[in-house]
């Protein structure tokens, strides 16, 4: 039996409107929680884990999320995709949460559960840092490999084999001893859609809820003091009007610059 755990988090659609709130220190998003879906890389991590479950008998895949109630939707989706169990570390609406706090909470919940392989997405869609996975591994004292584009396991030898791409257009093949953590950048198959039968099953499945203990929060975190909108590096001119009009205006601009013949 190989126990795999996938860490997931909800994200807003890339084009959902976003404004800095009155306090100037956090944002408000113009999207409802019902639109929340797992982040792109988290979905790829789920797909990667479920592929292993399809390929090897005796693989169990669980999903875990740390965040407010909206995370339940993402966990249900993970169950709908084929995960066996879901764990929710419930927090309040906390605004900005340092990555180290999330990693600490995840590792506290994971420690006693003896998973052989933990997968996380390469990075979240909102913070775009790509650091929670590595920190979680470190808190758990596990080896960790990042930016993986393919993952396989050798259950007998208790090895995780990965491929990853690094700068300079190079691809590496690596292996590590289980238990281990890998962060997922890509998967050979696109994330599967939840199946109807699994969605129906997921609705009745219980999601284990753990209250995030505010006292245990790691205090090394960074403090966000202010949010601002980015400054323009180039003075963009927005073309106006219907698409056809903008298209012919662009054609004239490019002809006048001799870029287009």
């Amino acid at each position: 039996m190989i126990k795999i755990l996938v860490c997931v988090k909800s994200s807003a659609p890339a084009d959902a409107p976003l404004v800095i709130n009155d306090s100037g220190a956090w944002i408000e998003r113009g999207f409802s929680h019902t639109e929340a879906v797992p982040g792109r890389y988290d979905e790829l991590a789920l797909e990667q884990a479920l592929r292993l479950k399809d390929q090897i008998s005796g693989v169990m895949v669980d999903a875990i999320s740390c965040g407010p109630t909206r995370e339940i939707r993402v966990l249900r989706r993970a169950l709908g995709m084929g995960c066996d169990n879901a764990i929710h570390i419930l927090t309040g609406e906390e605004g900005f949460v340092p990555a180290i706090t999330t990693a600490y909470r995840l590792s506290s919940a994971i420690r006693s559960r003896s998973y052989d392989l933990i997968l996380t997405g390469l990075m979240s869609e909102d913070m775009n840092q790509g650091i929670v996975g590595q920190m979680t591994a470190e808190f758990l004292g596990m080896p960790c490999l990042t930016s993986c584009v393919s993952i396989s396991v050798d259950a007998e030898r208790r090895l995780v084999m990965v491929e990853r791409d690094i700068e300079g257009a190079r691809r590496q093949k690596l292996e590590m001893n289980m238990p281990a953590l890998a962060t997922v950048q890509a998967c050979v198959t696109p994330p599967r859609y939840p199946s109807l039968s699994k969605i129906l099953r997921a609705v009745s499945m219980e999601i284990e809820t753990i209250e995030a203990d505010p006292v245990t929060v790691h205090d090394r975190g960074e403090i966000l003091t202010r949010l601002t909108y980015p400054t323009r590096r180039r003075s963009v001119r927005f073309l106006e009007g219907p698409s056809r009009q903008k298209a012919s205006e662009l054609v004239s601009i490019l002809r006048s610059r001799a870029i287009l013949g």
Binding site: A99, Q134, T146, S147
Partner: peptide, 18 residues
Amino acid sequence: TQGLDLATGLAVRINAGC
């Protein structure tokens, strides 16, 4: 890719923020 792979776990290990 290497820096991100290396440094964040290092932060936890030396009890630093990141």
